[in-house]
């Protein structure tokens, strides 16, 4: 087959000299390309700044609007106190319901994570991972709806335990995912060393693998706690909130910080709204503090 000479790239003789190409006049779109390159660099920087603005705005406004009413009375009185209402019942409510939820959802999640990482065959593991993906994608309000349509309607009525169960439903897949991922990182050689010593499989998992992964497991559990602490939707028709101080009575309605913020923010009275902002400070402080402590150490590794 004859080579069509008109198609062959210019031979060396026809090309402009290298010096011409390096130094010669601008050709075509060259200047435009350089400008676009710089512009896009700046645009992406601007995008990064724009994304951070809401964070600063939210934290800033919450502080500005909530600090004036964040008094000692606010932290030590229940919201039913007619003289000077506070948020103590909400704070204590969260501090009761969330740990109970973590106890239920966290322990189940840890066990399921152990199964997926330690025992499941490839197909079962893939199926389990997908199941967790699906559960993570289910909106948290549906956890509240589920508990409302079962536990609340047929058994407990509005109660703290219903709230804890609803939060546990939200935390469950989070803990599975976290523990599964962390346990997979434990090198197989550690398991083999233990099994080779004649230590039973379950002992190996409980006293060798889990302790090796404990820092990561703790991270996952802390983040699940923070997530549960900030959830409002699952509590709306389960724990419902309460004006009075409820310590230890899980069969009655109970207040929670996010519920307090939500409910107070919609009240027509200015002082209640101001209290909603103050409660938002407490909520934000607790949730962000956990996140800062837990994520701060590991963020470098995620950026490279």
């Amino acid at each position: 087959m004859a080579v069509r000479t008109d198609l062959v790239p210019d031979g060396a003789a026809q090309r402009p000299s290298a010096a011409d190409r390096l130094l010669g006049p601008h050709r075509g779109n060259e200047r435009m390309r350089a400008v676009v390159d710089v512009v896009m660099r700046l645009v992406s920087l601007a995008a990064a700044i724009v994304v951070i603005v809401p964070l600063v705005a939210i934290v800033g406004y919450v502080l500005v609007k909530g600090l004036p009413t964040l008094t000692l009375e606010f932290l030590t009185h229940a919201s039913g106190n007619t003289e000077s209402p506070g948020a103590l019942n909400a704070i204590l409510g969260s501090l009761q319901m969330v740990p109970v939820a973590l106890l239920i959802g966290g322990s189940l999640g840890l066990l399921a994570g152990i199964y997926l990482a330690e025992y499941a065959g490839p197909r079962m593991a893939a199926g389990g991972t997908f199941l967790v993906d699906v559960l993570l994608g289910v909106p948290s309000i549906l956890a509240g709806v589920l508990v409302y349509a079962t536990l609340v309607t047929y058994w407990t009525g509005s109660s703290a335990i219903a709230g804890s169960v609803a939060l546990a439903v939200v935390m469950f897949p989070i803990v599975i995912r976290a523990s599964e991922e962390v346990l997979r990182l434990v090198p197989g050689s550690i398991r083999e060393a233990s099994l080779a010593l004649g230590i039973a499989r379950w002992r190996t998992v409980v006293s060798v693998v889990v302790p090796v992964a404990r820092a990561g497991l703790l991270t996952g559990i802390m983040l699940a706690f923070a997530r549960g602490f900030g959830e409002t939707a699952p509590l709306l028709f389960t724990a419902r909130g309460s004006e009075s101080l409820n310590v230890g009575d899980f069969s009655s309605p109970m207040a929670a910080l996010p519920l307090f913020v939500y409910q107070n923010s919609r009240l027509p009275d200015r002082t209640f709204v101001a209290q909603a902002w103050s409660a938002a400070i407490v909520l934000l402080a607790i949730v962000l503090a956990i996140n800062v402590i837990v994520r701060g150490r590991s963020v470098g590794s995620r950026v490279e």
Partner: peptide
């Protein structure tokens, strides 16, 4: 390709004496 702008002060440099073009 079209020439959009000429670089001010541009003149194709003569190869340094003793060097072959394209080295």
């Amino acid at each position: 390709m079209t020439t959009v702008t000429d670089r001010p002060g541009y003149a194709a440099p003569a190869p340094a004496p003793g060097t072959e073009a394209g080295v």
